[in-house]
């Protein structure tokens, strides 16, 4: 499964690169990622939530790192769902913004877990990556993911409509969305 997506962020290339390069930042905008821990200069541990409250964990290796230009990674050999990704940062024609181009590739095997992951990504995996990049843009431009009353979880394509009514959240809903 190959996915590409792109967005334009009104921030300097160096800042966008640095944000992404600190892999711990990825879960702030990547919906399915719970945590990324850097273990050494090249390696990191990625934790994603899977259906039925399960967690999937894999090791990733940095395979490319060109400052202010490109970052590439791939999962270590023992990963259940072998995957790799590249993100490129390009100065936009306006001279101040940064175009972010992402390419992800997943090898979804025939195993039980592979199927579960495929299902988890849903019918529109591309849409999910697109959502991730919108959140990246929001986080970099405004400092946080925007939450409306109808969409308190933020931009999420599969929940655009129908969604909850545009009225304030109950205490329970607030706990569910914000965890507080």
């Amino acid at each position: 499964m190959d996915l590409t997506a792109t967005t334009t962020v009104r921030r300097p290339v160096g800042e966008v690169y640095a944000f992404w390069r600190l892999l711990e930042n990825l879960p702030t905008f990547m919906e399915h990622l719970d945590e990324v821990r850097t273990t050494d200069a090249k390696s990191s541990t990625w934790v994603a939530s899977a259906p039925f409250d399960r967690k999937v964990e894999w090791e990733a290796v940095l395979i490319e790192d060109v400052v202010d230009e490109r970052i590439g990674w791939r999962s270590a050999e023992e990963a259940d769902v072998p995957n790799q990704g590249t993100v490129s940062f390009v100065l936009a024609p306006d001279g101040v913004s940064t175009e972010v181009h992402v390419h992800l590739a997943y090898e979804i095997g025939a195993g039980k877990l592979g199927k579960a992951v495929a299902k988890y990504f849903g019918e529109e995996p591309h849409q999910q990556l697109d959502d991730d990049l919108r959140r990246l843009k929001q986080v970099l431009e405004t400092g946080e993911v925007v939450r409306s009353d109808g969409a308190p979880w933020g931009k999420r394509a599969r929940k655009e409509f129908p969604q909850r009514p545009a009225q304030p959240l109950t205490a329970d809903e607030r706990r569910e969305v914000l965890g507080v």
């Binding site: 939450r147 409306s148 009353d149 109808g150 969409a151 304030p168």
Partner: peptide, 17 residues
């Protein structure tokens, strides 16, 4: 919801992002 699903102002309080 096409324009964001923001709760409106015909209420005692409103949240302003």
């Amino acid at each position: 919801h096409a324009l964001g699903g923001w709760a409106g102002s015909h209420a005692r309080y409103i949240r302003v992002p």
